[in-house]
């Protein structure tokens, strides 16, 4: 574990400077920008009827995170854990250190998770404050945002572990990851009955209370939520399984660069 810690610190330093982190940090602020625009809407375009800030938070900001940002951050960071070292031909520097192979994956996973969680939590918290700052003194409001952050964090870890695993053995992992994110996850999660339980998104959405059914309710139309405890256990279990699988594959597989 100490070796994994050293790897995590090394890659936190590298990740903090990378173009990818800068790009995703900007992208993670898109919901904040939306929140600001929503707050300014009455000023810019006064209309007699409008939705509440609670509605916008649950139906616009949160879905952007759940259905897009979590997936994108997990996909691009998770697949990069092994593939960027192989394609960038820097893996030899790491393999020539006295580090057990699993520690490389664990350390990079921890560094990527830390960066991803930071991006999402900062963005979500800021969006929440912008939309609901009038009620910032209400402890129930804080419980809501903390619950949402915990759900996003758990879903990020689960997807990150999945894409880390994918990146250990699939060459075009980003392509297949995109197919999974916008094909499988966004289709299967809306199938009726037990089929929707085959999507990770099902368990993530099961942990988020149904938003008030208005303009965007079609997004939740067919969700038949699983119990919260089961959803947490499934997400945590999948995270552990995918991560363990990634460690096993990386420990046994040799990586040959294109040359």
């Amino acid at each position: 574990m100490r070796a994994a810690g050293r790897v995590a610190v090394f890659f936190l330093g590298l990740g903090g400077r990378s173009k990818r982190t800068k790009a995703f940090f900007v992208l993670s602020l898109v919901p904040l920008l939306l929140a600001v625009l929503i707050r300014l809407r009455p000023v810019l375009s006064p209309s007699p009827r409008g939705f509440s800030s609670v509605f916008y938070y649950s139906n616009v900001v949160l879905p952007v995170y759940v259905q897009f940002l979590v997936l994108m951050i997990a996909l691009f960071y998770g697949t990069a854990i092994v593939m960027e070292e192989v394609e960038g031909r820097t893996l030899s520097y790491l393999l020539a250190r006295p580090l057990p192979r699993p520690s490389l994956i664990l350390g990079k996973f921890a560094a990527s998770a830390a960066l991803g969680l930071l991006m999402m939590n900062v963005g979500l918290l800021a969006s929440f404050l912008v939309l609901r700052f009038e009620r910032a003194g209400d402890p129930a409001e804080w419980l809501t945002v903390l619950r949402d952050m915990a759900v996003l964090d758990l879903s990020l870890l689960c997807y990150l572990a999945l894409f880390t695993f994918l990146g250990t053995f699939v060459k075009r992992a980003v392509f297949f990851g995109l197919l999974f994110c916008f094909g499988w996850e966004n289709v299967v999660a809306y199938f009726p009955g037990l089929t929707q339980k085959l999507a990770i998104a099902h368990y993530v959405k099961s942990l988020i209370p149904q938003p008030p059914g208005q303009a965007f309710s079609f997004l939740q139309l067919r969700l038949e939520p699983s119990p919260p405890l089961l959803s947490v256990l499934v997400l945590a279990g999948l995270t552990a399984v995918f991560l363990a699988a990634a460690l096993v594959v990386f420990s046994r597989k040799e990586y040959v660069s294109a040359d």
């Binding site: 100490r2 070796a3 050293r6 790897v7 610190v9 090394f10 330093g13 590298l14 400077r17 990378s18 173009k19 960038g88 031909r89 820097t90 030899s92 520097y93 790491l94 020539a96 250190r97 006295p98 580090l99 660069s257 040359d259």
Partner: peptide, 26 residues
């Protein structure tokens, strides 16, 4: 081990690169 290919973590300085690898040595 000095590999043949000309690849690095390009966004680091030479000092950061070496320091990081030494840290990985423990």
């Amino acid at each position: 081990y000095c590999p043949e290919h000309d690849s690095f973590y390009e966004d680091t300085t030479g000092r950061q690169f070496l320091w990081g690898l030494m840290r990985l040595h423990g």
